[in-house]
């Protein structure tokens, strides 16, 4: 968990910024069993937030139904090249990470 878990790209075209992010996370639903038949405890990202200029652009609430190493893409207006945006996630065990990216 100590490693960087977020890859993020933000690109401005016309007046719309497209953000693409990849996170590294097992996204266990809690319904899967391991080889010995024991349930693997649920471990998934519950919330992903993206902020730009101090404002929340999008807040995603996820269940374990999102694929492993989740990918998220969204668009927003009002961002300019060179500005920064922050993306952060929190999982059901309380782990979290965040990353900052320049809009290009």
């Amino acid at each position: 968990m100590a490693k960087k878990t977020i890859k993020i790209r933000a690109k401005a075209k016309d007046d719309v910024v497209t953000v693409k992010a990849l996170m590294t996370h097992p996204m266990e639903t809690g319904a899967r069993k391991d080889k010995s038949g024991e349930l693997i405890p649920a471990h998934f990202i519950q919330q992903v937030t993206c902020e730009h200029g101090g404002k929340k652009v999008i807040e995603a609430q996820w269940s374990g139904g999102v694929s492993k190493n989740p990918y998220l893409s969204f668009k927003f207006k009002g961002g300019n090249k060179g500005e920064k945006l922050t993306l952060s996630w929190v999982d059901n065990k309380g782990n979290s990470d965040s990353a900052e990216a320049d809009i290009r």
């Binding site: 719309v16 730009h52 404002k55 929340k56 652009v57 999008i58 807040e59 995603a60 609430q61 996820w62 269940s63 139904g65 999102v66 694929s67 989740p70 990918y71 998220l72 893409s73 969204f74 668009k75 927003f76 207006k77 009002g78 961002g79």
Partner: peptide, 15 residues
Amino acid sequence: ANYKLGEGAEPFVST
């Protein structure tokens, strides 16, 4: 998943 869109966000998500 549930996405709450903030100000300026376009109604577009991909997962």
